[in-house]
Nucleic acid binder design. Structure first.
Length: 273
DNA sequence: CTGTTCTCCTGTGGGC
DNA sequence: TGCCCACAGGAGAACA
């Protein structure tokens, strides 16, 4: 699933091919994503020049002067660029195509259709999906001091807190688990009972794991044009995620799995307290 | 406000 | 080899 690092790597991969280009047309074959793709998307986006491809949390934003396309890859979404000469026929789950003014096609595929594609005029950051997001984890506004202040008196578990996008944007299940392991914090610890120094360590762990993943993805990044599969997706060497029953990479004790809010948590019972 | 539960969807993998 | 089914999960919506 595309986590924040994958989305960022995808953004970096496609931006050079899209920024400065005009979108000639859009073809929507299946509009039933998480929310319906606007029926008049093609009319609205046709002729629009994309000046910038940016990211907020796990949302990709294709910005023009006065409007923006908001794109979320959900669980199974992917983007690929197809050159005009390749003429690849769309597959079953290729729901949307954008034709650029150089003939390139940007194709959105999403088998599970948890993704989203919306059009917002005006200031895109005022869109309800984006307006209430917390700080970006990789910016300096996201600090241990902030998390500490924000969590006094709160009983929610730290793992679930990290996955709350209004607290910090775009930290998903994998990186919440991984960061808690590196910070040596048990995922079920109530957020209000964690000290300032531990929050500082946790925030650093979040930044480090995300940055490491982005670097790993960037280093293996292939060209997005005419590439098969899902360029931008990459398999990380995880410390706890998906490693139930396997030995902890630090101490050898078996990694445990538990359920927190309908979501799997993975942790080392020896390293994380 | 807080915290919890529900919901959308389909590919994958384990069991038999 | 084929079939069945639990499971996975981002995150907004709904609810207590």
């Amino acid at each position: 699933m595309p986590e924040l690092p994958e989305v960022e790597v995808i953004r970096r991969g496609i931006a050079p091919h899209i920024e400065g280009r005009r979108i000639v047309s859009a073809t929507v074959r299946n509009s039933m994503l998480r929310w319906p793709v606007p029926g008049d998307l093609g009319l609205k986006i046709g002729g629009v020049r994309i000046t910038k491809v940016s990211r907020r949390a796990k949302y990709l934003l294709f910005e023009s002067g006065e409007a923006a396309l908001i794109l979320h890859l959900g669980m199974s979404g992917s983007l690929r660029l197809i050159s005009v000469t390749a003429a690849v026929p769309p597959g079953k789950h290729d729901h949307v195509d954008f034709v650029l003014d150089d003939g390139t096609v940007l194709r959105f595929r999403d088998p599970r259709r948890f993704g989203a594609m919306l059009w917002e005029t005006g200031d895109v950051m005022q869109h309800p999906l984006l307006a209430k997001l917390g700080p970006e984890p990789l910016t300096e506004t996201f600090t241990g001091d902030l998390l500490y202040k924000q969590t006094r008196g709160r009983s929610v578990s730290i793992k679930q807190l990290l996955m709350n996008n209004s607290v910090v944007a775009g930290v998903g299940n994998i990186y919440a688990n991984e960061a808690l392991f590196h910070a040596e914090i048990h995922p079920m610890t109530p957020a209000g009972r964690i000290s300032l120094s531990r929050y500082r360590k946790l925030v650093q762990a979040i930044k480090d794991t995300l940055n490491l993943a982005i670097e790993a993805g960037g280093s293996t990044l292939r060209d997005f044009v005419n590439s098969e599969g899902n360029p931008g997706y990459f398999q990380q060497q995880y410390f706890v995620y998906g490693r139930t029953g396997q030995p902890c990479r630090k101490c050898g004790v078996e990694i445990r799995q538990a359920r927190q809010g309908q979501r799997s948590s993975f942790y080392c019972p020896h390293c994380q307290k």
